[in-house]
Simulated scan of single mutants.
Amino acid sequence: MTQPSKRAVVFAYHNVGVRCLKVLLAGGVDVALVVTHQDSALENIWFESVQSLCELEGIPFITPDDPKSPELLERVKAAKPDLMFSFYYRHMLPQAILDVAPAYNMHGSLLPQFRGRAPVNWAVLHGAGEAGASLHEMTIKPDAGAIVAQQAVPILPDDTAFEVFGKVTVAAELALYGVLPALLDGSAPRTPNDLTRGGYFGGRKPEDGRIDWTLPAQQVYNLHRAVAPPYPGAFTDVETAAGTRRYVIERARLLPRAPAGLPADAAPGLAVADDAILGVCGDGRVLAIHGLLLDDARVSAAALRSQLQAAQG
């Protein structure tokens, strides 16, 4: 006798939300309700839309502002889910919702590493050699429940957080795809989430992208990689007679050695040598900056040289 399909309520957003929702649909899960977010006009929306997928598939969806509202709890209860999932939904779910049905969250790291917000960005910032996705049981404490499935992906030395996030999206899809049959029949494994390992990290703000050029070049380069566009970007301010100019690094590479045209006593900060834009760091190593933005427009090496000379004069 064929088992009836499991009903699910899914909290989802972003690329991971889209891909994992598609996995559930492909696996025969009856998605009774999707809870997602309204896209903000103030945000750079570079990712796929869960709402658009719901409209395409005819799945009921809502976009509540408050995850603790009684109205949301009633909608979730009315859906009578057997399971609940959270795929990059941006709010913590209250205990009242978690009590409705077994709930699982997809987190963008290899738990217990990089628990909390922006795990991919933090992993790149800390120079990690791998990232991944972890499906785990949801508890009221974030990223603390038992691990059901994991998939690792490499972080290459020049990968930006955007590139790593693309890999993590695939990792999330693979992790869920592999364990979904066992989740549906109740045989999925549970591995304790050892919270004595790893660490918890908070959200990041644009101001966290400010460059301290006195730091070693690898740290500066990791910061650039962690926040490179479409994230806000690593930036540096230069004081001029006309006011503060804010330069944002769009693209850069860490050079194995300083160019011959750069003076040995070059001060940390932006510089121009051999018609190239450079970032001189505290240990004497240098970033070759292939894209530098000022007021969202590309700055040439010649223009930057003039601007830096004007600032020094």
Rank of each mutant, 00 (worst) to 15 (best):
P206K: 06
P216S: 07
E207M: 11
G209K: 05
G202M: 14
D208F: 05
E207R: 15
T214I: 11
L223C: 08
T214F: 15
W213Q: 02
G233R: 03
R225I: 06
F201E: 02
Y221Q: 03
E207N: 10
A228F: 07
R204L: 15
R197K: 15
G209M: 10
N222R: 15
R210C: 08
P229Q: 03
G233P: 02
V220K: 04
Y200I: 11
H224W: 12
G233F: 06
G202P: 13
W213N: 00
P216T: 10
L195W: 00
I211Q: 01
Q218N: 08
R225N: 08
V227K: 00
D212H: 10
N222H: 15
W213H: 07
Q219F: 04
T196H: 09
D208A: 07
G233K: 01
G209W: 09
W213I: 06
F201T: 02
R197F: 06
P229V: 01
G203P: 14
G203M: 14
L215W: 15
W213M: 07
P230V: 01
D208P: 03
G233A: 02
Q218L: 08
E207P: 04
N222L: 03
I211D: 00
R210P: 02
L223H: 12
T214S: 14
A226I: 02
Q219N: 11
D208I: 01
P230E: 01
D208V: 03
G202V: 03
Q219H: 13
V220W: 14
G202C: 12
L195C: 05
K205C: 11
I211E: 01
P232D: 04
Q219L: 03
G199Q: 05
G233V: 04
A226P: 00
E207C: 11
H224S: 00
G203I: 09
E207F: 15
V227W: 06
I211H: 04
R197W: 07
A217F: 15
A217C: 13
E207I: 14
V220F: 15
V227M: 10
Y200L: 15
H224N: 03
F201R: 09
P229N: 03
F201V: 07
Y231Q: 04
N222D: 14
V220C: 13
H224Y: 13
E207Q: 14
P230Q: 06
Y221S: 04
L223K: 12
L215S: 09
L215H: 13
V220E: 01
G203W: 11
K205I: 14
P232C: 08
H224K: 01
G199A: 06
R204C: 11
P206C: 07
R225H: 11
A226E: 02
G198C: 10
L215Q: 12
L195K: 13
L215A: 12
Q219P: 02
R225Y: 13
P216D: 10
H224V: 04
Q218C: 05
Y221A: 01
T196G: 10
P229S: 06
Q218A: 12
R225P: 04
G198F: 05
L215F: 15
W213R: 02
R225W: 12
D208E: 12
V220I: 13
E207A: 14
V220G: 05
G198L: 08
